[in-house]
Nucleic acid binder design. Structure first.
Lengths: 195, 195
DNA sequence: TTCGTTTTGTAACGGCCGTTAGAGAAAGGA
DNA sequence: TCCTTTCTCTAACGGCCGTTACAAAACGAA
């Protein structure tokens, strides 16, 4: 596989991938052209195709690495916090910072990356990732239901949907340029809806 | 102005405009090409330019009429309900239906119409409309603050931001194909965050 | 009929889209 | 040195983008 023969690559693959993540993050899948990528990454289009495959394949890898490097705070909260409500509290506390960091694009690639995209393959992939996060939250809520941590009449799916929808609304507000403190105040209110 | 001379128009301007609204609503500004419009409306591109101006001008008119015909339920709630909380309750109650109506595109044109759009003129116009609705909600909240209808320590701007952000999150969930009943349950939870 | 006015259909403009063929460059192995 | 392998660069492909020039068509007015 990774033979050492042939002409060596002229760029650092990881560094270039990170630049691509930021560009897709900023402009979305369809708003980012291969020419844009070529200029931003400083490598020719054929080199992109050689190193990352076509645009869809490239974007799939971008999504995977983005989720690891930048977007994984939801999964972390679900895994590390004891209760679903504590996970929600942590997510709502962290989100405003995550969605408006200095030196990084605003908002969330997984939430808005497919916006206005005609490509159903890309849109479906992103939608599935989003749905998976709602399902993971609902699972955590159901665990707290059986343990009595949450009221028995709680609708787990609806509460998970509410949480992730509000989160995506906050991400969109961040994209609109709303100041971080205002996002934090809104997120604090959002947590108040939890039982 | 509306002279009766010259060759008569071959289409009903209002009917064609409504078709354009639905197409922009479904695919967004950038995802809708002039060729798409030409096919969907059943008229040639030159006729579109003659009747509605260029694409940006056309979209501006589409936005105006959309807000009147389909999107105005927020303004109506703010105008007709006595308190801000009653307006929020009505908006959260109506939104799931508004955002997933049979025979109409899902979601909201004003919320997602500029998604993935490079055109800053269009994006700014939509952002301003959204900000205006947040500001209107904040005004209504402040009125209830001075009248004692809401607790004195309420952050009007944050509560308005929370409400509109959650609403846009629900609209995005509708675009993702979430069932209306689930949206309604999530919206009911959202209202619970209000003081 | 003839004229002026407005809308229509055809056809094209330059420009960007994703993608790739083909030639040359730069490395290791023999 | 020469060969194989791999990457890079130039250049182009067909296709869609928004937009418009131009001429034919269809009306009211004269």
């Amino acid at each position: 596989m990774a033979t050492t023969r042939g002409r060596p690559s002229s760029f650092d693959r990881d560094a270039v991938l990170d630049k691509a993540i930021r560009l897709f993050w900023r402009r979305g899948y369809e708003g980012t052209s291969v020419r844009d990528l070529s200029e931003e990454l400083g490598i020719g289009a054929p080199s992109i195709y050689n190193a990352f495959g076509d645009k869809r394949t490239f974007f799939a890898e971008v999504l995977r690495v983005y989720d690891e490097k930048y977007g994984g705070f939801i999964d972390a909260a679900l895994a590390e916090e004891r209760t679903a409500k504590e996970a929600a509290a942590r997510v709502f506390a962290e989100a405003p910072t995550r969605y408006s960091r200095r030196g990084l694009p605003t908002g969330c690639l997984i939430i808005s990356g497919d916006a206005g995209t005609a490509d159903v393959t890309v849109a479906t992939r992103l939608r599935r990732i989003r749905e998976a996060k709602v399902a993971a939250f609902a699972d955590k809520i159901r665990a707290d239901l059986t343990s009595g941590e949450l009221p028995a009449d709680t609708d787990a799916q609806a509460l998970a949907r509410y949480t992730m929808s509000t989160l995506s609304g906050i991400a969109q507000a961040a994209r609109d340029g709303v100041r971080r403190t205002e996002l934090e105040h809104a997120a604090r209110i959002a947590l108040g809806a939890w039982p």
